[in-house]
Design a protein around this nucleic acid. Structure first.
Lengths: 331, 331
DNA sequence: TTCGTGAACTTGAACGATCTAATCCTGCCC
DNA sequence: GGGCAGGATTAGATCGTTCAAGTTCACGAA
C-alpha cells in the first residue's frame, strides 16, 4: 500500500520547497512557469491531494457548508427541499465545497447545533431553507458574522442578507392566468392562513391577477393548514357556494390533491392547479407551478461562494427566480 | 467578541496541563475524580469545544461519513432514499458523526469521488445505497480497507461486508397474502426485468406465496422497466387475458400507479398493491409495502460505528428488516 | 534508608498545511 | 564593477490537538 503523500513528498520529488508547492496550489501567479509545471507534474505523478484538516487548521476555513435536512413532515411537500438539496450538493461540489447535513427538532435546538458545528468543524457557512417571519436563525448567524444564504426571502427583518427565492406571486399569477385564458371567470384560491410569508406571497399573485382584469376576488378565498383532507374540505365549501367557482388555484400540491378529490365527486368539470410540481402532481396529472430548484440551489451556492471566496461585494445579493407553470390534464 | 477557546485556555483556567484536559475528554478513567470535575467545569464555563480539524490531523479520524445523494431519477421512488437520508443524519448525529454528501454521474465518477473525499477529508467511512449485481464500489472500498456499510444486500459477491436490507420477498409475500385473504385467486405480478437483485427478490416473494397455497403463477408475471406508463401497459396486457387476474402485486409505487390507471378504465374491480409506501401511495389511497427506513438507517449507522469505534467484531454484521403492509383503499 | 511501583500529571514533538520573514538570484543602471 | 530593485524561492514558526516519553509523588517492600 502506498505511503501517505504530503506536500513535503511533492516538494522533494519536484526539487523545490514545501512553500513553493503550496504557492503552486494557492497562488500560481507568483511561481515561475517552468517551476509550476514541474510541481504540477509531481502532484499528478504522486496523486497528491491537499489535506483539508491541515489546511483548515492554518487558514480557519473548512470548505464545508452546512444545511438542514427536514424530518419529512408532509411527504408530498418535503420532496421540494430534497430536490433543492440535490442541486445544492452538485453546485457545492463544482465550487469546491462540500455539504454537511444536520437535523434539529426546533429553532432552539437548531441554534445549539450551529454553535456545535461552528465550534467543532469550523464551518464556512450555512444555507437555510424555509425562512419565515421573525426567523431567529438569521439574527443569530448575523450577530456572529457567520456567512449564510437563505433559500426564501426574509419576510420582515430589515437586515438585508443574501437570499434566493422563487417568485410565488408570479407562480400563482401564472396559474390564475391559465384559468382565465381557458375561459374561467370565477376562480378561487385555497391557501394557508394569513401570516406565513410564502403563503401570503402566493395568495397575492392570485388576487392581483383577478383584480387586474376587473374581477372581484371577494368570498373566493379559503385559509387552511396544509394537507389533502384540508384541501378537500376547503374545496367543498367553495363548490357549495351559490355561485361556485369553476377554477381552483391552490397554494400547494397537497391542497390541490384534496381539491381534486372534492371535484371528482361532482358531475361538472372544475379546473385545479397546484404548487411545487411534486412527483405526485405528475403522477395524477395535476397542473402545477414548477420551481426552478436546480437554479435556486446554484444561486445560493454562488452567493455564498462570493461571500467566502472574495471580499469584493459586487453583483446582486438577492435573486428572485420566476417559476413556470406545468400544464397537465387538471387545468 | 470572545477570543477563541482552545484546550490551552481550558488548561490554564483549570490549572492543569493541556494533556490532562485531553485525557478528561478522551480517557476520563485515568484522571483523578477531583481534577476531572475541575476541568469539566472549566470546559462548561468557557464553552470549549474540541477543534475537529486539529484532532483529525493528529488521529487521522474525522468523524465524518459520506453518502451519495441521487440525482432524482424517478421522482416517486427517489423519495425512498431521501427518507433514508433523513434517518441516517439523525442516527449519525446521535453517534457523534456527521454526514457529508456527494453526487456522482456514474460508477467510475463515484470511485474518483471516493479517492477525492478520502484524500482531502480523511473520511471515516461510507454508507452506500442501492447495491446491485457486481457492484464495483464495494470491491474498490474493500480493497483499500475503507470502512463501509451498504443499505442493500450484496447480490452475488462472496465477500461479506456489513449490510442492512429490507426483506423484499417478505414484503411481496405480505401483499400477495393480503389479496389471498380478501378472496383473490388470480394474482399477477408486475415487476422489473429479471437480473436486478431487488426486483428478483420481490418477485420471488409473490411466486413463493402463490405456490405455497397451490396456485400456479405461470403467465401472470410481467417484466418491464419502472414507470407509470410501463405499469399501465403491463396491467392492460394482464387484464386482457382470457382468464384475467383480479389482483395485481407491483414491484414499485410507480408501476402500481400505472396499474391503477389501467384498472380505472375497467368496469370490474381489480385490487392493486404497490411497494415503498411513497407519498404518492398515501395520496391516491394505494395499498403499499412500507420499508422501515428509519430503522434501516439506524442499523447502518450502528454497524458502521461498531467498525469505527471498537476493534471487537461482535454481533451480527448483516441485518435484514421486515417491511409492513399499509392497507388502503386500493386493495 | 533505599528502592521500586504505579497513579497522576506534565512536557516536547508531531500531524500537514500556510504565513511571515528572510535569502537567493538576475538583470539593470550608474 | 558595485549597488539595488524586485521576482522567485526557502526556512522556521504556527494552527490545536494527541502521542510518547518523561517527571513528581505517595506508599510499601526489601
Amino acid at each position: 500500500m502506498s505511503q501517505k503523500v504530503t506536500i513535503a513528498t511533492v516538494a522533494r520529488h519536484a526539487r523545490v520547497s514545501r512553500q513553493t508547492v503550496s504557492n503552486v496550489l494557492n497562488a500560481p501567479h507568483i511561481v515561475r512557469e517552468e517551476t509550476r509545471q514541474r510541481v504540477q507534474e509531481a502532484i499528478a505523478v504522486l496523486g497528491y491531494r491537499a489535506n483539508q484538516a491541515a489546511r483548515q487548521m492554518r487558514t480557519g476555513r473548512s470548505r464545508l457548508i452546512a444545511t438542514r435536512i427536514e424530518p419529512t413532515r408532509d411527504g408530498i411537500n418535503g420532496s421540494v427541499l430534497d430536490r433543492f438539496l440535490h442541486g445544492l450538493t452538485d453546485a457545492a461540489a463544482t465550487a469546491g465545497y462540500r455539504i454537511m447535513l444536520y437535523t434539529a427538532a426546533d429553532d432552539t435546538a437548531e441554534l445549539a447545533t450551529y454553535d456545535d458545528l461552528l465550534g467543532a468543524y469550523d464551518l464556512d457557512g450555512f444555507v437555510l431553507t424555509g425562512t419565515d417571519h421573525g426567523d431567529p436563525r438569521t439574527v443569530w448567524l448575523a450577530e456572529r458574522e457567520v456567512p449564510f444564504v437563505t433559500f426564501g426571502r426574509p419576510w420582515d427583518t430589515p437586515n438585508q442578507h443574501p437570499w434566493v427565492d422563487v417568485d410565488g406571486a408570479s407562480g400563482a399569477a401564472q396559474a390564475t392566468n391559465r384559468l382565465l385564458e381557458t375561459g374561467h371567470r370565477r376562480i378561487a384560491f385555497i391557501g394557508w392562513p394569513t401570516g406565513s410569508g410564502v403563503g401570503d406571497d402566493r395568495r397575492s399573485g392570485w388576487r392581483a391577477t383577478l383584480r387586474a382584469v376587473g374581477i372581484d376576488p371577494a368570498g373566493l378565498d379559503r385559509e387552511t393548514s396544509d394537507g389533502i383532507v384540508q384541501g378537500d374540505q376547503a374545496a367543498r365549501s367553495l363548490l357549495a357556494l351559490a355561485d361556485p367557482p369553476t377554477g381552483l388555484v391552490c397554494a400547494s400540491d397537497s391542497l390541490a390533491l384534496g381539491a381534486l378529490r372534492a371535484v371528482r365527486a361532482l358531475d361538472r368539470p372544475v379546473a385545479v392547479t397546484g404548487f411545487d410540481d411534486t412527483p405526485v402532481a405528475e403522477a395524477v396529472g395535476l397542473t402545477s407551478v414548477s420551481q426552478p430548484l436546480g437554479r435556486a440551489a446554484a444561486g445560493c451556492m454562488e452567493l455564498l461562494a462570493r461571500i467566502l471566496d472574495g471580499p469584493q461585494a459586487d453583483g446582486a445579493t438577492q435573486v428572485l427566480l420566476r417559476p413556470a407553470l406545468v400544464v397537465r390534464q387538471s387545468a
